[in-house]
Simulated assay, not measured.
Amino acid sequence: MHNAKLARIIENITTGSLLEAFLQQKPSLMAVEFNETSAAETCKLVAAIVQERAPKLRLDELKELLLPETDFSWFKQANPLAELKRIISRLGEDFPGKVALQRKLDDEQPLVLPDGSDECLIEGIRKVARSHDLESLDEFVQKQRNNIIHSIIQSPDYSQHYMFGAIDNDGNVNEELLNNRFSDSDVEWDEDEEGNLHRHERDAMSLDEKLDQIDITSLRVDLDAVFSKEINKLWADEVLKLSSALSIELQTLYQRELDNRDFMAFVNQVRAGQSGKWSDRWSS
């Protein structure tokens, strides 16, 4: 390398390209991981947030159900942030953008959802509920009726009360009898050896039992997006904004070099460990 100034320029340009590549990946700095929950608990709370005039209490219950903790400061130690810190550590301290970003990355303040985020969460959850037909649990279950029946047939839990009498002599699940379990009550008649009929009233499937047979994977994905949006507002959005500002600062500072094909060819050769073809005008 011909001089320290040129070495520093090449290092800063390289760091700028690494930072730009990092941003182009659109990293999720604060990706939410929900608790494992039953479908019934999740669906009932989401529906309640749509139905109730004052849904704040239900939202608090949903937060408690889904979120493993209310302090999200542990996101600051996540792998994407470690990569970002590694990239900007290559720069000197004379970049205002680095100073601002470093200050944000070193911020140790706790990250807790403020009360003001509740209205945004409620509106987002209501949109999710509408898209999944969860405005009415009864209608939601009826629309899912066939899926619920097929789910039970594929993986029957013989200990459940609604399975009693729904198994034929060959040990197979009787789909017609399972369908009857969706009614409020299910009356059956048994004939004894003497030909006498006996009336039996079986319990129908409860709402929770129906809901727990529904695959809510896509619902959880959409709820994740709603919560992630609000949680990222706490800190991560500002980190990405400052990262973008630093990237622009570097690009602006070295625009002349970046636009010079010969110089960039030389830079790429140096990056590859080659000597490159030097021109004295680049050190001026």
Rank of each mutant, 00 (worst) to 15 (best):
M1N: 15
A39Y: 06
E41D: 10
R53D: 14
E135H: 05
I167Y: 07
L253N: 14
Q24M: 06
L134F: 05
G97K: 05
L219Y: 12
D115H: 12
K229G: 06
H2T: 06
A204E: 06
Q144K: 15
E176F: 00
K63C: 11
V267N: 08
V221Y: 15
D115L: 11
D107K: 10
D190C: 02
L246F: 08
K127I: 07
Q213D: 02
D280I: 09
S183C: 00
A7S: 15
A40V: 06
V226K: 05
N79V: 09
I88M: 08
A31F: 01
G124Y: 15
E201H: 09
L178Q: 03
F266E: 08
L105R: 04
I9V: 10
R199Y: 12
E176W: 06
D237I: 08
K26H: 09
D208Y: 14
R126H: 04
K98I: 01
I10E: 07
E188N: 11
F72V: 02
D222T: 03
N268W: 08
L134Q: 14
E209Y: 14
S279D: 13
E119Y: 13
L253G: 07
D133N: 14
L121W: 12
N79C: 00
L207Q: 15
E52Q: 12
P80K: 15
S247A: 08
E69I: 00
L207I: 09
L19A: 04
A39R: 08
